[in-house]
Design a protein around this nucleic acid. Structure first.
Length: 228
DNA sequence: GCCCAGGTGGGTA
DNA sequence: TACCCACATGGG
């Protein structure tokens, strides 16, 4: 994604953060409730959060399928497997060497901090899990927040490339604002509800994927065109 | 063949 | 702080 690319769409009115609840309802009317869970288990979600970094979802799915096929989609098995074999299994996800390294560092952290047990991580209150996750090499804010929202059911809004692209195009804020600023704007404008954050992010991804498949200008197609 | 995808960390000025 | 860059496969 090149944020400096010229803005390819007609000048639009500015979308205000206060309109986000309404935007969510518009997306939901268009796409329907997503009930989105990007993985079969919470642990799989955490693994997927690392594997999906800057990668097409279809490639991630191949890597997850390989891990499942090899029977290593568990904390214990991922701790035991060699980095070399792990890298070979996740090859379709791209960046396989660096992601094998990141998965290993995450697993090491997961055992050191929580004994490899998700329930122990769940019990920890407040912002401690996020702070700790961010200390793991290879886990940045989006990866940490994806884990917190989709694996631990915490009310944390995930900001991804689709989110920034779509809302920057609607001139709500600049693409280049920091992750924390983007997140603060969304979380200030929306009630703190896990189910809302889960489905809103899923709606954004649904829109992002739909727009990737069309060459039409955004405003001809987008269910948010009423806000232009 | 070319462009891009649900990021992150390291290096340089 | 603010940019560069490496990391890599697979689909359109």
């Amino acid at each position: 994604m090149n944020p400096s690319r010229p803005f390819p769409y007609p000048k639009s009115r500015k979308l205000k953060p206060e309109e986000l609840p309404e935007v969510y309802r518009a997306l939901r009317r268009h796409f329907g409730h997503q009930d989105w869970w990007p993985g079969e288990t919470p642990f799989e979600v955490m693994v997927g959060a690392i594997l999906t970094q800057n990668t097409a979802w279809s490639n991630l799915e191949k890597a997850i399928a390989n891990l499942r096929q090899a029977g290593v989609l568990s904390p214990e098995a991922l701790r035991k497997i060699s980095k070399k074999r792990l890298a070979a299994l996740i090859r379709p996800a791209g960046y396989f060497n660096i992601k094998a390294e990141r998965l290993k560092s995450f697993i090491q952290f997961f055992f050191k901090e929580y004994g490899g047990r998700l329930d122990r991580m769940r019990k920890e209150r407040g912002t401690a899990p996020r702070t700790k996750l961010l200390s793991v090499k290879g886990v940045g804010p989006e990866t940490a927040d994806s884990m917190l929202l989709y694996a631990l059911n915490r009310p944390i809004f995930v900001i991804d490339a689709y989110t920034k692209r779509i809302f920057a195009r609607h001139r709500m804020m600049n693409f280049s604002e920091s992750y924390d600023v983007w997140q603060k704007v969304f979380m200030s404008a929306l009630p703190r509800q896990t189910s809302l954050y889960n489905d809103f992010h899923a709606q954004i991804v649904a829109l992002g994927k739909a727009l990737c498949k069309t060459s039409k200008p955004l405003c001809d197609y987008c269910p948010l065109s009423r806000y232009l």
